[in-house]
Amino acid sequence: MIELKNAGFNYGGRDILSDMTLRLSPGSFHFLTGPSGSGKTTLLNLCYQALMPTTGMVRIFEQDVRAMTRDDVARVRRRIGVVHQNCQFLDHISVRDNLTLPLAVSGRESEVDQGNVDDLLSWVGLSERGDALPPELSGGERQRAALARAIIMSPDLILADEPTGNVDWEMAQRLIALLVELNRMGKTILIATHDLNLIRNTKSEVSARVLRINNTKLQLAGADL
């Protein structure tokens, strides 16, 4: 699904990631942790071609990122749901319209079922906010809306960058439960988070691997997690 082979990334000569080898196989569930500024967001960006690796190789759905055209990138992204750390929306259309936008841009607007959109909104606790404009949402509400937008296309892979960073414990549990449910349906999940409690809690539900970025390198975290 996603494959990194000795991939590295640097900003202006400063290594952020180096020599990363990683394979996300279909249906797997991964957590990604590491101190702030260690490169979690950077690694996720490599996984959906928002950044090009400066060294090594990255393959997304069996395609080498260096050989992708811009249209290839667009096609690949339709199969990946991304929750950004600072999620962005189209600020002039409603939350509801933002959720269905991924279907619209891939020519599947006819598949929009407002009933499903309502279900999705209520799953992430935004039933009341569907008609609001994105700038009117709180930080936590934005994250939940971003998660809803990421999964509306039923993507094969979900990349979530601190999806629970701004919500209370109960809501965090609920969002993770949603992702666990999707994983049971066969989706591949990668979640970057600082929240070790959340990881421990989830590992009782689903067999998840925990990766840690330490000093630009990727390690498998110990059994204590």
């Binding site: 928002a50 811009r70 249209d71 990138v73 667009a74 096609r75 690949v76 992204r77 339709r78 991304v82 950004h84 962005q88 929306f89 189209l90 600020d91 936008l101 991924p102 841009v105 891939s106 937008r149 296309m153």
Partner: peptide, 16 residues
């Protein structure tokens, strides 16, 4: 620019 960024992120092709 932001609109274009969001559209690219969710898989819009340049033509769209």
């Amino acid at each position: 620019g932001q609109v274009i960024g969001v559209l690219r992120l969710i898989g819009a092709r340049d033509v769209y």
